[in-house]
Design a protein around this nucleic acid. Sequence first.
DNA 1: GTTCGTTGTTGACACTGGAAACATTCCTGC
DNA 2: GCAGGAATGTTTCCAGTGTCAACAACGAAC
Lengths: 225, 225
Amino acid sequence: MTEQTAYHHGNLREELVAAALEMIQESGGAYGVTLRKIASRVGVSHAAPYRHFQDKKDLLAAVARQGFDLLMDWTRKRLSETDGEPLSRFGAWGMAYMDFAIAHPAHFRVMFAPPEKGMTLSEDLRPESSQYFKEFQDLVSDCHDKGVLVGEDPASITRAAWSMVHGFSTLFIGNHMETTGLDFQAVTHMKRSILTTFYRGTRPDGEGLPYRRTAGKKESEKENP
Amino acid sequence: MTEQTAYHHGNLREELVAAALEMIQESGGAYGVTLRKIASRVGVSHAAPYRHFQDKKDLLAAVARQGFDLLMDWTRKRLSETDGEPLSRFGAWGMAYMDFAIAHPAHFRVMFAPPEKGMTLSEDLRPESSQYFKEFQDLVSDCHDKGVLVGEDPASITRAAWSMVHGFSTLFIGNHMETTGLDFQAVTHMKRSILTTFYRGTRPDGEGLPYRRTAGKKESEKENP
DNA sequence: GTTCGTTGTTGACACTGGAAACATTCCTGC
DNA sequence: GCAGGAATGTTTCCAGTGTCAACAACGAAC
C-alpha cells in the first residue's frame, strides 16, 4: 500500500475504475468515454489498462460490479434502519432503490446499460440472478405470507415493484420528469407517491382494470393492426 | 417515386433510417452500429449520409422520431378498439405501451437512449413534452374527474403509471425478466399482472405503506450513511 | 546479483466520425 | 433546347479510437 515508483503505479486497477466513473459522470453517459482518455487521466499510457482489463467492456463491467456492490450496501443499510417489520422493509427497499439511482446515476446507468453486440451479460451482472434480488424476492414472499402484501402472487408483486421503482429511476435520471426547478422536497414527494400508489392502487372499488380489446385480434399481438 | 439512376439514389434518407434500424435490431443496441456500415448496406459511399443528416446523432434521432410516431399510431389504434370508457382507455394505453416496447425493442431503445455528451435532447424527442403525453395526462385527468382512478393527484398517477409500464418494458427487453423459455401466454400474464397491480394495489387494508426511516438522518439523502 | 514474472510504454494496425474538394445529376429560366 | 445553379454522391484526407505485439523498467526470489 506504500507509495510506488513513477513507473509502477501501485493500484492502477482501482484508479482506472474510479477515473472511468468520473468521466461517465461528467459526460453523463457511458458512451463518449474513451479508454485512452481514462488512461491519460490516471497519468498512464494508453495501453496500460490492458494489463488489468481484457478490453473496454471489461472495465465498464468492473464499474457496474462496483455499482451493484454499492447498491447492496446501500439497501442493507436502509433496511437495517427500519423497525424490522416486513412491510417497513419492503417500503425501505423501494425507497432505497430510487434514492440510489438518483444519488449515483452514473453507476446506475452503467449497471443497466444494454448488453453489447455478441456478448451475453456475464452472470454476476444480471441483477435478477443476484443475491440482491433473491433477498428482495424473499422479502416480498415474507410480506405475502404474513398477509401484508396481497393481490397477485409473490413473483408478480416482485416484478411489479421492481418495474415501478426501476421505471421511475430510469425516467428521472434520464431527465424525463420535468425536473426543472425541482427542489428536494418535490423529489421526495414524487418518490413517496410512487410507493403509495404501488401500495394503495388507484381503483375506487371492486372491479379489476379493463385492458381487453373489444375489436382487436388477439392471436398475435406482435403486429398492431 | 420512379426508379432513379445509379448515382442519385432516390430516397436515400429513408433507406438510411431503415438500414440503421435493421442494424440496431441485429446487434441489439444502438452502439456498435457505425455510420459507414449503414451507408455501405444501402450501397452508398460513407460520406453520403451527411447530405441528409448533420451527423450520426442526427440519424439516430430520426430513428427515434420515427419510433415516437409509431408509438403514437400504435396507441391510438389500441385506444380506438376499446369501448371508449375512460378506464378502458387507460388500461389500453398501458398495455399498448408494453406491447409496443416488446414488438419494437430497437425503436424503443433508441427512443429512450440516454442523451449524449453536451447535447440537450431536442424538444420533440422528449416524450414528456410531446403530444403523446399530453393526451395521456388528459386521459388520466379524465379518469380522475370521473372517479374511476383515485388516490393521488392526476400528475402523480400519470407519473406512477408511466414508471410502471416503462420499467417493465425496459427490464423486459433488457432481458432481466427470466425470459428463458417464456411463451406468449406467460408474457401476456406478466403484462396483465403489472396493470392489475397498478390498479388494485397490494395492501390488504386501510393503512399506507411505511417508507420512513426510523433511525436515519433525513435532511440530506444524497449520501446514504 | 542474476533471473524472471509483473506491470507499464511505444509503435503499429484497421476502423471510426467528420470535413473538404470534386463529380454527377436534376431542375429551372431562358 | 440548353445553360447554369442547386442537390446529391464520391474521393480523399485527418485526428482519434480500441486493440495487439514488441520492448523496457521494476520487484522479488534464488
